[in-house]
């Protein structure tokens, strides 16, 4: 079964073409990463799949629901970690997580557990605005997880995390997969993408120029890491 199915997705902002006919699909239970340089259109894609932004045209289904007609269903079942997350700044970490748990109708029984898994227990009573950037990211993830989603979007979740926290988050993401949750990830860290992803899509200038497994892409460019293969691909396009 496909958790996400996108066919010929276009997005214009006024005159500007940002997405130019994307087609890809994400299978249930897999970790799917979208890679690509700044401005390629990764966040725009995630926003459209989250029903925050409207597609200009294209056929999109998420968990079997179409966009835009069944957006409310999609919002109820997808967990979102936006690139720029901000909670209620004067609420504590715990109150933020509780709020999102309740918003998704999931009660707050899993709040404590989620906070401790993300190393947030000792900050449970700290106001959101007092946290460091890395801890804010963790709260963003906690607020997505407490809604008990079957599909989760993580837009650059590891930006600003220290190496240890990054590894911890990788483990959390793998655990999600083990629980059968589908993960759509965007990242600039190719090592991360290589380690975690079942499949990757490389976006460039509003188009998907490769959509495959990390192994096949490495094989295509005869490189031993996804990062080198990616750089070789960008070089072939005239990018540094």
């Amino acid at each position: 079964m496909e958790a996400i199915k996108v066919e010929d997705l276009w997005k214009y902002y006024d005159e500007k073409e940002v997405l130019k006919g994307l087609t890809f699909s994400v299978n249930e239970g897999e970790i799917f990463s979208i890679l690509g340089p700044n401005g390629a259109g990764k966040t725009t894609t995630v926003k459209i799949l989250s029903c925050i932004d409207k597609p200009t045209r294209g056929k999109i289904e998420v968990l079997g629901y179409s966009i835009p007609s069944q957006c409310q269903k999609i919002r109820e079942s997808v967990g979102i970690v936006p690139q720029e997350f901000q909670g209620f700044s004067d609420l504590s970490v715990k109150d933020n997580a509780r709020y999102f748990a309740e918003l998704y109708g999931k009660g707050n029984s899993s709040v404590e557990e989620t906070l401790s898994k993300l190393g947030l227990i000792e900050y449970a009573n700290t106001r959101f605005k007092k946290l460091s950037g890395g801890y804010k990211r963790r709260v963003a993830i906690a607020c997505a997880l407490v809604g008990k989603p079957s599909l989760i979007y993580l837009d650059e979740p590891t930006v600003g995390l220290d190496p240890k926290s990054r590894r911890d988050l990788w483990n959390t993401i793998k655990e999600l997969k083990n629980k059968g949750i589908t993960v759509l990830l965007t990242t600039h860290y190719l090592d991360e993408a290589q380690k975690l992803s079942d499949k990757v899509a490389i976006m460039y200038n509003g188009k998907i120029i490769r959509s495959s497994t990390p192994e096949l892409i490495m094989k295509e460019f005869e490189k031993s890491s996804l990062e080198e293969a990616y750089l070789a691909l960008m070089e072939s396009l005239g990018e540094e």
Partner: peptide
């Protein structure tokens, strides 16, 4: 400004 609205927009809140 805080982008909290964006996050809420992606939630089931109507």
């Amino acid at each position: 400004r805080d982008k909290l609205v964006d996050r809420l927009a992606a939630s089931p809140l109507k």
